[in-house]
Amino acid sequence: MYKTSWGSTLMTIILSLALGAGAILLLGYDPIEAYYQLFRGAFVGKFNIGGVMERFVPLMLTALAFAVSAKVAVFNVGVEGELYLGAIAAAWAGYAFTGLHPLVHIPLCFAVAMVASGAWGAIPGALKAYWKVNEVCVTILMNYVAIYFTSYLVGNPFSARASIPRTPTIEESARLLRILRPSRANIGLFVALGVLVLVWWMLYHTNWGYKLRHVGQNPFFSEYVGIPPKKVMIWGMILSGAIGGLAGAIEVMGIHGHFLDNFSPGIAFDGMLASLIAKNDIRMVPVLSLFLAVLKTGALGMERFTGVPKTLIDTIIAVFILLAAMEGLFAYSRRRSARSSGEEAA
């Protein structure tokens, strides 16, 4: 339950980049040149900036989905499945309804996606709340179910009968407006940021959020002061699922224009990492998601211009996670010593 601080996060970022520089040196490349190309590849030109945003949106939303479930003390590994279900639901609503105004069609697609994956998220939530079934096992397995189910749908009832397994292209009215052309970034970015602010506000400024947070922190206390912990836990999972579904919907409606079988290379797992590094602190989620998005996007440019393999970036991310985890460890031991000395004094 420790809080993150901006300063320590920045220090962790710098330190992991420094260790990465060491690794680049060992490989026989010039780290300054490599980082220069990395940041050029992420920040110079509309295409590159747009590329960062493209990656940022689903990362941030899936991270947020994970963080929300963590608030009700559920370790939700199932965001990937929710992403898939949301994506296919949005794709279906995108091509099946025709002749709608974009202002109706886009919210409709979002709604269908969020309902589908919200309901999906409720299943592990209810299993944990009422029968104490371990949510990690359930959500991992449910990912397979969700992904294979979308594979079936895209191959059969929802198939576009094209050479690759995908759904028909969605109506123009369900498309999210592109920004920063020629990249595929789109106004989904603003939707995502809006959702982030809204979720944060709900958690910290409404009664509903108050219940959610307390159920996660201490279900016994919550029950005693009159909050039904089981129901609230399920609602938290529904919200988490809905956010995951929204991420999938934005991928379909903003980037691909259809649902493509196996379209996600584990986006939600990167999102989970971002949230874990942020210690599930909603305010840090966008910062760390952006950081990961920048590294992943810039890595392409770095590889192209300097020859440093882009997989090195995964090493840097791994180092970063290690450092962030260690920071947590330090904070924890500080707390412990502070607490034990506090008890002496108390």
Partner: peptide
């Protein structure tokens, strides 16, 4: 366990039973 949410601050603990009613919300 029951009486307090130790990881919340004092005001959230004090207001736990009345936070959902006016005037606190």
């Amino acid at each position: 366990q029951r009486g307090l949410d130790r990881f919340s601050d004092v005001k959230e603990n004090l207001a736990a039973c009345s936070v959902s009613e006016p005037p606190l919300s």
